[in-house]
Every structure is written in structure tokens, then in C-alpha cells.
Computed example of a mutant assay.
Amino acid sequence: MIPVFDGHNDFLLRLLDHPDQRDTLWLKDGREGHLDLPRMQRGGFAGGFFAIYIPSPIAHDAPDYMAAMENPPFALPLPDLIDHHTAQPIALAKAGHLLWMERASGGAFKVCRTVAELRECLAKGVISAILHMEGAEAIDPDLDALHSFHAMGLRSLGPVWSRPTVFGHGVPFAYPSGPDTGKGLTKAGKRLVRECNRLRIMLDMSHINEAGFWDVAALTDAPLVATHSNAHAVTPSSRNLTDRQLAAIRDSGGMVGLNYATSFLRRDGKQSAEMGWEDVLAHLDHLLQHLGEDGVGLGSDYDGATIPVGIGDVAGQQNLIEAMRRHGYGERLIAKIAHENWFRVLDRTWG
């Protein structure tokens, strides 16, 4: 098996939603969701970014997002901003869940803060985790909480999920649509970028709109990274990256993690899991063409999206590796995509 280091998952949301079942969800080989410790071990999951994501309150008149995404075209309204007073208790709970997962694993799982720790885990067969924040709702405009979460192990942060924050604006879920959907970073957002650079926290460009992307590109001294995004030229979703954005990522020495979410993979924009490998491999080919062999990784979005039936869950991720082999990718390239490129870009970002 090729070890896979993954750019994004939402497993912490499952623990938040089912606190009385966390032992079962984490330690037992399950059939629901995409992740648990036994399936990670069975599927060659070497580690990844575990996201703190703040769910939006569900309004009684909210549209049926899943139904809409089954029938493109669609342009779904974004939820309202969530302030840091509301978000911080949820974010703290999720950070605590990740630390609990480490303790409960009996040494099989470790939260890492350096690339040296990531490499040591890979060598020893220990699954590694990076504490990541998908949307900076829990960070106050003065950035005091950023330092607190950094002390807890936060090493990666996306300024926005798709809804707005005090720092910037995300892309809506829309197909067909480009990512140029609104204003860029706020003044607080520019301070956030500079402080993340100072603390060596990786900045994630997934979900941010195009104006915000270019604001970050102009400010940051680190490689540009999108942990779980795909190619807009293949699937014209607002969540995917244009060739011009890919060129900027390449020129910065950054990378993109392929998102397994079907609505960002399928050329027709549908969310259905019933799909083959053609569109998946088309995205990988396009990303490799525009980013080079050192600029492409994997960013599954496990437990946060509909995944192609050929993968199913983390236990089936080696099916994607085998599809790459059949497509003509050599073992050296596959190893880069599967884990080596993530370590390279984190080494440059974290120092």
C-alpha cells in the first residue's frame, strides 16, 4: 500500500454531533461515515488535516442544498456570518476532541506540530494529524484567539469557509460559476495573513473567493496552498480553481489537494456518487499539467462530502492509487501525490 497523507476531513464534526458515541465512532470499524481508526489503518491512511468547522444554524426556510446539488444548474445562498463569541466554544470542543482521539488511540494516532514529527509517524506506522481551522469564525478581530489555538497545536487555517467572516468572503456553492464572486480580504483579514505568516501557520485557499485569493497572494511570504480544491477548467464550479490561480500556486511553490467531493469532480456538476474514474483522473491530469509533479496532493473532504463510489470511504482509498497506476502514473509520481508533496510544502511553510 502507498501511504496517503490527506489534505482535509471533517471527522471532528461527527464527534461533535454524537458526543455519546465517540468511542464507537473513533475506535470501532464502522459502516457509517468515511473515517474511523480501524478503517484508516486498513486503507493506508498515514495522516491528514483534521478540520475545526463551525456548522451554520439551520433555518426553517433553508433550501434543500443536497437536492439542489443533484440538479444543476444551482446557485445556493450563503449562511450568515457567525461571530467569534458563538464559534469559540464549538472550536474549543473540536480541538479537545482531536486531543482525545490521540489519547484514546493507545499510541496509534498523534497530533503533530512539526514536519519532523510527521515523518517520524510515517516511519513508525503511526497515523498523524494536523489541527486545521476551516473558516476563522473562532478567531476574534484582534487575533488574540489565534495565539491560543496555535498553542493548542493549530498549524493550518482557512480564513473562510464559504460563508463570510470578519476576515473575508467565501465562494457560494454554485454551478456553473467562477470563483470571482465578491470583495477580497478585510483589514482584519490582512492582519490575519501577516500574523499567520509570523506564527508559520499555513493558509488554506480552499473556499475563499478569487479577490481574497489574490489579496492573500500579494501579502503572504509562504507557498499558496488549497487543501481540497479541483480544476475549474474541468468542472466549472465556483469552488474550483482557475488556471490563473493554479499558475500563482505553482509559482509560489505551493500545491493543491484533489477534493473527492463528487460535485466538484463531475463535469456535469452533480453530486451523485455513481461515477467512474474518468473525471477524477481528468482533474489530476490538469492539476499536474499546471502545477507540476511537486504541486499536487490529495484532499479528500472525508465526512464532509459525497465521495465517488469507487472510493467509498477511507478503507477504499487505495482504489484511487490503483486507478492512477492503470492511468500510467509511475510509482515515484504516485508517492509524491500520496504524501511526499504535503511534507515538502509544510517544510517550506512551517520552517
Rank of each mutant, 00 (worst) to 15 (best):
D10P: 04
F11L: 13
F11W: 03
F11P: 07
L12H: 06
L12K: 05
L12Y: 09
L12A: 03
L13W: 14
L13G: 05
L13E: 10
R14M: 07
L15C: 04
L16N: 00
L16S: 08
L16R: 10
L16A: 13
D17L: 10
D17N: 02
D17I: 01
D17R: 12
H18L: 04
H18A: 14
H18C: 05
H18S: 15
H18M: 01
P19R: 06
P19M: 04
P19Y: 03
P19A: 06
P19N: 03
D20A: 13
D20E: 14
D20W: 01
D20N: 14
Q21N: 13
Q21R: 15
Q21I: 00
R22L: 12
R22I: 13
R22A: 03
D23K: 00
D23P: 00
D23C: 00
D23Y: 09
D23S: 05
D23H: 09
D23I: 03
T24D: 12
T24M: 13
T24I: 09
T24K: 09
T24G: 02
L25C: 04
L25T: 08
L25N: 02
L25E: 13
L25S: 01
L25G: 07
L25K: 06
L25W: 13
W26T: 08
L27Y: 09
L27E: 10
K28I: 03
D29M: 14
D29G: 01
D29Q: 09
D29S: 14
G30C: 12
G30E: 01
G30A: 04
R31D: 11
R31C: 02
E32D: 15
E32F: 04
E32V: 13
E32I: 15
E32K: 13
H34C: 03
H34A: 05
H34W: 12
H34N: 11
L35I: 15
L35P: 14
L35N: 06
L35A: 07
L35F: 06
L35M: 15
D36R: 08
D36W: 10
D36P: 09
D36Y: 12
D36K: 05
D36H: 05
L37E: 12
L37G: 10
L37Q: 12
P38Y: 03
P38W: 03
R39V: 03
R39I: 03
M40G: 15
Q41E: 15
Q41M: 14
